[in-house]
Simulated scan of single mutants.
Amino acid sequence: MSRRRVAGAYLQEIRAECLRYLRSPGFVLPTLLFPATFYLLFAVLLGHAQPADAARFLLGSYVSFGVMAPGLFGFGMSLALERDNGLLTLKRAMPMPPLAYLLGKMVMAMMMALAIVMILQLLATAVAGVTLSVQQLLRLTLVASFGTLPFCALGLLLGTLSKGNGAAAVINLIYLPMAVLSGLWFPLKVLPPLLQDMAVIWPSYHLNALAQDALGFAVGSAWPHVLWLAAFSLVFITWAGWRLRRHG
């Protein structure tokens, strides 16, 4: 197959994946609107009871919370369903590049993350009164777009471990506690000391650190967080790939 046809196959898979989710409002609307709703509630409606920089800090927290969902649900739940209904087996039998299936879902997750961060930035600057430089906006957008990839890796693994009907419940049992234990919903200092120390194991903790760094909050060097997320993604993709080869 020529390079042009290979590239066309990748583009067609990306297009099909994005169209499939755009035609699923039960996935798209909650993914886009939940972070925005929570931000409006805590940063705007309850903003009078918060410190001066709270709206800017909450922007980073809810961006981190929001971009977790496209990777976890877009990969995990759909992969579990497609394994159950035989679609994954059909795609494997088709003459398509082996990575097109995963790349399509990854691009879809990144596009959803991009939409989430743009909505939250608009709310922060136009409604919550947050002042952000162009550099901060661009850095936060970059963090959000690529920050969903570790959760794609985790979602991929969960999709190999779950049955289609139970995948949503399994993912929610990980998604929501992870957000709480990472300090996305309230400061880590209110948690017991043991849970504070354990926060560093969660990818959402490191993603939030990068988001806060992009917004001007001092979190130290960003590279340890980047490297941790890269290592997490590599380990979980490798693990999920092994399970797919072994169990289908």
Rank of each mutant, 00 (worst) to 15 (best):
P193W: 04
V200D: 05
W223L: 15
L227Y: 08
F186E: 08
L215M: 06
L234M: 14
M198Y: 04
F232D: 02
P224D: 07
Q196P: 07
L229F: 00
S233N: 05
I201E: 04
F236Q: 01
L191E: 07
D197C: 05
L184P: 08
L215Y: 00
P192N: 14
A209H: 10
A231Q: 10
W185A: 08
W228G: 12
A218C: 12
K189Q: 15
D213H: 13
V235M: 11
V200C: 09
P224S: 10
S182L: 01
A218E: 14
L234E: 04
P203Q: 00
L191I: 09
L227E: 12
P192T: 07
A214D: 08
M198F: 13
A214V: 06
P187Q: 06
W185Y: 14
L210H: 08
L194P: 01
L194T: 07
W185F: 13
F186S: 01
N208Q: 12
S204C: 02
D197M: 11
A222M: 13
L188D: 02
K189H: 14
G183S: 01
P224V: 09
F186L: 02
S204L: 09
A222Q: 13
I201N: 06
S204D: 01
G183V: 00
F217G: 06
L188T: 06
W228C: 11
A214L: 05
L210G: 11
L184V: 02
G220I: 11
S204Q: 03
P224A: 10
P187M: 02
D213L: 14
L191G: 05
P193F: 12
A211H: 00
A218R: 09
A218P: 08
W185G: 06
H206L: 03
V226P: 03
P193L: 12
Y205I: 04
W223P: 03
L191P: 15
L191W: 06
V235D: 07
L227Q: 13
M198T: 04
F186Q: 05
